[in-house]
Design a protein around this nucleic acid. Structure first.
Lengths: 351, 351
DNA sequence: CCCTGCGTTGTTAGCGCTAACATAATAAAG
DNA sequence: CTTTATTATGTTAGCGCTAACAACGCAGGG
């Protein structure tokens, strides 16, 4: 025996990291005071606060978030579930979310549902079991079980990318239907008469854009289902070329195409270049989302601009407001869209 | 007094979710047996296991990961820190990581360092305080403090995207220097003689590609610093066009360009089309990474193919192996690269 | 019959933190 | 100068889970 009275009955599990008790001992206060000094500094006198801050620095103390979560039943984790990590649409929004959280205490827990509602449900179940302080999910097409979980979640929930009349809680996005309709209307206004639709993956938002496009065609008495070319395959530039080629073989009179996203539109442009079809005079092309490359292409490509970054930023703002106790008055935020008419649909006047 | 003997001295904080004790009570066993049945099913007899599984299903029990983490000082969280979420390179790798984790118990904690080593250090400090079961970080250019944290981390660490002789622990990637050199050598071999370099953002990997390119030029006696055009601005298609225009104004004899990435290369192609310069006969273009669009462009674009998806998958495999107690023999995995020669550098024979 | 070994289950004592309540010190009010 | 409100700090008792050890039953060996 060493004569020492401390009883190391069990070796410290935490790898010897300093705990709040170490900080408290060094600062000569109780642990709860340290806890308060770190979470609500104004609740602790300046004298003690300084002593505690010094002790924290001396010991290089970092609070254990698991212990904190367990004791308080709260976390600083914002759960985010998106359908894709590679799709620019979501990576832009994600970047905005991270940017919006900059400096604050919130952390992100990111899930990738891969466009599967079942996977989304599974992820939400896991996320919710960890008591997130808020949730961001894409769209409004959850499974019934997921919808119920979200409705019963005792934290703010923001659905992003879309707007619909029946949000779970809050919503930031725009109308894909109207976006599709506007693109169709633009092509009609530019004088094109045999306008096709090219779509890939066909997730709910894609389908709404397609429906909007179809509506525009119907309104103009130009709707023809044979001009619709879609595939469940995920989108790519090459696919845009293939689908356009297929469609033109089937319908040689095709004189314009609304591509469900910009990758497809870029592929369509290359396909026209390959086939010696002049854009926009012989053939018009419009994309969707207005990625940066659309304005840099030659010819520049028409697209429907969407504010993906703004959606992420606003979602974070709304969550912040809720957590600060000032829930926003407007639960649904429609950030709209704008048809960016460029060279690819600027047909010279004819007939 | 109601006469009831239960003492609700404090209302249950957890919102009434079932705990492991509820499951244990329902299955008629002790809590530790439930804990074991869920974590190491083989340590519990089949009879009890079935009863416990039934109770779990009946109560819809989900373990509290915070309590588990606190009690065991372990988590199932894989920390991933990447410099960008929008750069295709990292989103492809990230997708692979998520795909590789599919079905398993591991979850991802994702950090975005935005190409800042200081931010990376901050994120690593946070992540490590949560006892991740493993870490994936990009590259080998950490701050000294971050490097030390990684070396002292008591979990597997995989550095991705690059290979270098002094990894913290494990490493999966390829040599950016050699990739840049190969691209330069290819342009020389195709007969181009005044070859420029266009680069953006200039992160460490970009710089290594540039250095490799410069080496190729030096080896051929063709190095000319005036043919290098770089900017700290982040990369875009439009930027590729602007940089090429600038460079051609300065050096009208330029006859090819190695673009540090594919976005820039696409912008360079559009710039040539706008200026009526024929690619590849008058001007050669090579990109880097070989994104999907490169093979779909017109003309198809030469690039250096890198296995971004494979890097993510292998990183996860290595981590899995370590956690299973079979650390891989080879700590450094070089997945290489391949110059994909396409039309944009296929110059017709001349002089 | 005891001993040893092994597999299964339970008991106890925390992990590091914070909620709730208790208390002390100080200020404001009468 | 007491009463009441207010602020600053401390005490106690967990949050839900798991590590460590204890205990039990049962096999085989001596």
């Amino acid at each position: 025996m060493t004569g020492q009275e401390d009883k190391p009955a069990r070796k410290r599990r935490g790898g010897g990291r300093p705990t709040i008790a170490d900080v408290a001992a060094r600062a000569g206060v109780s642990t709860i005071t340290v806890s308060r000094a770190l979470r609500d500094p104004h609740k602790v006198s300046e004298t003690l606060r300084d002593r505690i801050d010094q002790a924290v620095r001396d010991l290089d103390y970092v609070p254990d978030s698991h212990a904190s979560a367990l004791a308080s039943a709260r976390t600083n984790v914002l759960g985010v579930v998106v359908p894709s990590l590679t799709n620019n649409v979501f990576s832009d929004t994600l970047r905005a979310i991270y940017d919006g959280l900059e400096g604050g205490p919130l952390r992100v827990q990111l899930g990738n549902s891969r466009y599967s509602a079942a996977e989304e449900e599974r992820l939400l179940r896991i996320f919710l079991s960890q008591r997130p302080c808020a949730l961001i999910v894409a769209g409004n097409d959850q499974t019934p079980a997921a919808r119920e979980m979200l409705e019963n979640a005792d934290c703010p929930v923001v659905q992003i990318m879309e707007v619909s009349p029946d949000p779970v809680d809050m919503m930031v996005g725009f109308s894909h239907f109207e976006g599709g309709r506007a693109a169709g209307a633009h092509l009609i206004a530019q004088g094109y008469r045999h306008i096709g639709f090219v779509g890939a993956r066909m997730d709910p938002r894609t389908k709404r854009r397609q429906a909007g496009f179809a509506q525009a065609m119907k309104d103009a008495g130009m709707y023809d289902p044979a001009l619709i070319m879609t595939t469940a395959t995920s989108s790519s530039v090459a696919l845009g070329g293939w689908l356009l080629r297929e469609l033109r073989q089937k319908r040689p009179d095709l004189d314009a195409v609304f591509c469900n996203n910009d990758d497809l539109a870029l592929g369509a442009l290359f396909e026209c270049q390959r086939s010696g079809i002049s854009v926009p005079d012989e053939f018009g092309i419009s994309g969707f989302n207005d990625l940066e490359m659309m304005a840099a292409a030659f010819p520049t490509l028409t697209s429907v601009r969407t504010d993906r970054y703004g959606i992420g930023l606003r979602a974070v703002e709304m969550i912040r407001a809720c957590l600060d106790g000032h829930p926003p008055a407007r639960k649904i935020l429609d950030l709209g869209f704008a048809v960016q008419a460029r060279q690819s649909t600027a047909r010279s006047p004819r007939d």
